[in-house]
Simulated scan of single mutants.
Amino acid sequence: MATRIDLTLDCADAQLLAAFWKTALGYVDEPPPAPFTTREEWLASFDLPDDDPADGGAWLCDPDGVGPRLSLLEVPEPKTTKNRLHIDVRVPGHGSTAERWARIRAEAARLVGAGGSVLAEFDGHHVTMADPEGNEFCVAAAPA
């Protein structure tokens, strides 16, 4: 059995990025682990320092349970260089190269509307984008 992974993204504003990535991936807020009924209750169980706010993170999951969970954690230091790991948002569907490229560009436009920005287009293949805090990701067609 393969090992499952979660992705954790450091950020300045967890709620801003949570809204973006929920839109980009179709994810939802992950419920707190049992037996806790709220995320705040769960966080309180760790006896965190006073300067570590309960809203300094967001936890997202694929509602179908297929994709990796995504944790967004606020940190004091800003992003300074290109990501060493990035997310590829895969657009479903088959068809000609032109049809796939049209879907990729439409998804990139949708994500610009959600707060992302286009960094570069590689005609017919993928679009490199950034989320609202500048974290790079790509929009490409799903493998055939």
Rank of each mutant, 00 (worst) to 15 (best):
D55W: 00
A130S: 14
A120I: 07
F20G: 08
P78G: 05
D88K: 12
A120Q: 14
D55L: 01
T81P: 05
A34N: 07
A102D: 15
A109R: 15
F46N: 04
A142K: 15
M1G: 15
P49R: 04
A14N: 15
H125G: 01
A18N: 12
R69H: 04
F46M: 06
G56F: 01
P31R: 06
A58Q: 07
K82L: 02
A98C: 06
S96L: 09
C11V: 10
A114E: 08
A144I: 09
E107H: 00
R84N: 14
A141W: 12
Y27I: 04
R110H: 11
A108I: 00
E136R: 11
V139I: 10
D50R: 14
E40A: 11
G65M: 02
G26A: 09
V91K: 08
V89E: 09
E30R: 15
C61M: 12
G115L: 01
P132R: 07
W21E: 06
K82I: 03
V66Q: 15
E133N: 07
D50G: 13
L119H: 11
V112T: 14
A141N: 14
D64K: 10
Y27C: 05
A144S: 12
R110F: 04
L25N: 14
L111I: 06
A130E: 06
A108F: 00
A114N: 11
Y27A: 01
L111C: 00
A44Y: 07
M129P: 14
A54D: 11
P63D: 00
W42L: 07
G116A: 05
D50F: 09
A12D: 15
W101M: 04
F46A: 12
P33V: 03
S96W: 09
A120T: 15
T128S: 03
D62E: 07
D123M: 00
G95D: 09
T128G: 07
T3M: 09
E107K: 05
A130C: 08
M1P: 13
E30V: 01
W101Q: 04
M1T: 13
R90M: 08
P31W: 00
E107T: 03
D10A: 13
D123W: 00
G115W: 01
A19H: 13
E41L: 03
A58V: 00
D55E: 08
D52A: 10
E74L: 01
T128C: 05
W42M: 12
P78A: 02
G93D: 11
M1K: 14
H126E: 11
G65A: 04
H125A: 08
G57N: 13
V89R: 07
P68K: 00
F122C: 00
A18P: 06
K82W: 07
